[in-house]
Amino acid sequence: MTEDLVDIVWNGALSGSFDAAGLSGRWSIDDGEHAQLAVLARWVQRGRSRAGWKVGLTSGAVRDAFGPGVRPFGFLLQERVFESGATVGLPRMSRAGLETELCFRAGRRLAGADLDTGEVERSLSWVAPAFELNERRIDGPQDPGVRVADNLTQWGVVVGAPVSPLPDRAVLARSAATLSQDGQVLETVAADGHIDDHYLSIARLAAQLSRFGRAIEEGDLVITGSFAARRNGLEPGEYAGAFEGLGEVRVRLVEA
């Protein structure tokens, strides 16, 4: 990893896009994680704070896209955590996308490579229906290392009402998410066979973070992967994500 490459990704984070043509083959996934954390450090230097983490490549066709069990992390910025019902301007995001996800809150610090899913479950405060807001910043080759450096398209998150205590694990395993726009159903996706076990994903996240001297800290938010989504050509409107047995999240996306 070199500083000039971090500069490219950082400038893309500020502007909403960057040309990746010259980056092909130059970064491993680990290089990408180091670069991503360097970008996070620059946000912190500007007075921003980290709200939590995302676990990447846990669902659908992208599972194992970087190799069996490879689940890279991304970070969430506090200033881009919105409550359900918020209005967000589409121009704030370049080539915006939206995904229905579940968001968990850590009730205590989770660190290291030896966490089991039971320990993870006992350490979480709540779960909530959520939207991940995405920004497709990369122009050119979509190398794994570059995608990780670019924070896996993460831009923000909208969080619904917390559910606490956590529901039975079987509820999460069989839940389905329905995405609607202005009252019209766009897609319904069930968890079964589609997404990794959420507690396993969080354990993997803690293990991956530990390799870079990081951890899931008490109070961190963690999003664990996409259900129903709209990734291209996102239009203005009122979007709702309803999770069976867990509630609903809403966001209004506007052109202003």
Rank of each mutant, 00 (worst) to 15 (best):
E119D: 05
L186H: 05
G160I: 04
G225S: 11
T87Y: 05
H194Y: 14
V185A: 13
A191Y: 00
R174D: 14
A128M: 00
I202K: 09
V185N: 06
L90T: 10
D182G: 14
R204M: 11
A113F: 00
R169H: 10
F131S: 04
V81M: 13
T87V: 15
A206F: 10
D220F: 03
P144Q: 14
R174G: 07
L221T: 02
R137S: 08
Y199A: 06
P144V: 12
L200F: 15
D168G: 15
T224V: 15
T188M: 02
A86D: 02
V185I: 14
A149H: 01
I223Q: 01
I202C: 02
L152R: 03
T87G: 06
L186W: 13
P91D: 03
D197R: 11
G107V: 13
G160D: 03
V88Y: 10
R214F: 04
Q184K: 14
G85R: 10
L152T: 01
R108V: 09
A203R: 00
D182C: 05
R105Q: 12
P167F: 08
G219Y: 03
A86Q: 09
T178K: 06
E79P: 04
V171R: 10
D197S: 01
H194V: 00
P129A: 09
G89A: 12
V189S: 05
F104E: 00
G89P: 13
A149R: 01
A161R: 12
C103R: 10
L133E: 04
A176Q: 14
R108Q: 15
R80N: 10
V171G: 00
R108W: 01
F104C: 00
E187M: 09
A207H: 06
A86C: 13
S164R: 15
P165E: 05
G140F: 09
V159E: 07
A176E: 10
R109Y: 02
D168L: 06
S94H: 15
A207Q: 10
D150R: 02
T188G: 01
V157A: 11
V158I: 08
A203T: 03
R80F: 08
G107F: 12
G156K: 01
G183Y: 00
E79Q: 11
H198Y: 11
E121A: 15
A170Q: 12
T117Y: 02
T178A: 14
A161I: 01
M93V: 14
V158D: 03
T178L: 04
S226A: 15
R169W: 06
W126I: 00
N151L: 06
L200A: 14
P162C: 07
P162T: 11
V185M: 10
D220Q: 01
G112I: 03
A191K: 12
L200W: 10
L172A: 03
E187H: 05
A177K: 05
S84E: 04
G140I: 11
G97W: 02
V189P: 12
L90F: 13
A177P: 11
L166A: 00
L166M: 06
R137F: 09
Q142W: 07
G112P: 03
P165W: 11
D139S: 11
T188W: 00
D150Q: 05
A215Y: 13
I138M: 07
A203G: 01
A113Y: 02
V158N: 07
S226T: 11
Q142N: 08
A161N: 08
D114N: 09
D196H: 08
E121L: 09
L115H: 07
I195K: 08
V222N: 00
R80Y: 11
V159Y: 02
E135H: 07
